[in-house]
C-alpha cells in the first residue's frame, strides 16, 4: 500500500512516505478512465504531472486543525502518490482531471488515428 521515495543525494532519514491510492481503470474505444481514491484531497491539493509516457498522480491532503487530542486514529496522514505508464495511443493534450468528493476522475482519450472506425464500402 505504501511507497517510500528517496530524493537523490539526501540521507535515508529524509524519505517521504506516500500512500498508494486505490484505483479503478477502464478502457473503452474512446479512451481510458482512471478513478483514484484520495480522501481529504481537494482540487487545489492535486498535482498531475506528465513526463514522457509516465503520468504521476500526487494528492496533498488538506491540512486541517483538529481541536484537542486524538482518542483513536486509523487514518494515515501521508499524501497520496501513484505512477502509471500511459498507453502511447493516448492523446496526452486531451487528458482531463477533476476531483469529486475525494475521488480523482481522469479521462484519457485516445488519439483519433487509433480509434476503431467503420470503413465505408463503396
Amino acid at each position: 500500500m505504501k511507497a517510500t521515495l528517496q530524493k537523490e543525494g539526501q540521507p535515508a532519514a529524509a524519505t517521504v512516505e506516500y500512500l498508494a491510492p486505490e484505483v479503478d481503470i477502464y478502457e473503452t474505444n474512446e479512451g481510458y478512465l482512471i478513478e483514484a481514491e484520495m480522501p481529504g484531497v481537494s482540487k487545489d491539493g492535486l498535482e498531475v504531472t506528465l513526463e514522457g509516457t509516465q503520468i504521476t498522480l500526487l494528492g496533498h491532503r488538506r491540512q486541517e486543525t483538529v481541536p484537542g487530542q486524538a482518542l483513536f486514529r486509523e487514518s494515515r496522514p501521508a499524501d497520496f502518490r501513484r505512477v502509471f505508464e500511459l498507453d502511447p495511443a493516448i492523446d496526452t493534450a486531451k487528458i482531463v482531471a477533476r476531483m469529486d468528493q475525494g475521488v480523482l476522475k481522469m479521462t484519457l482519450p485516445k488519439s483519433e488515428e487509433v480509434k476503431p472506425r467503420r470503413i465505408t464500402v463503396e
Binding site: E37, M38, G40, Q69, L71, F72, S75, R76
Partner: peptide, 30 residues
C-alpha cells in the same frame, strides 16, 4: 481493516476530543 479481500469496506475513522466536543472523522471518498 484496509484489505477488501478480508472484510469488505471498513472506512478509516478518527476520533478527537477537546473540552467542549468530540469530533469523529471518517474517510468516505466518492
Amino acid at each position: 481493516r484496509s484489505s477488501n479481500l478480508l472484510s469488505g469496506w471498513t472506512p478509516a475513522m478518527d476520533i478527537y476530543e477537546d473540552k467542549d466536543s468530540l469530533v469523529v472523522r471518517v474517510e468516505l471518498p466518492g
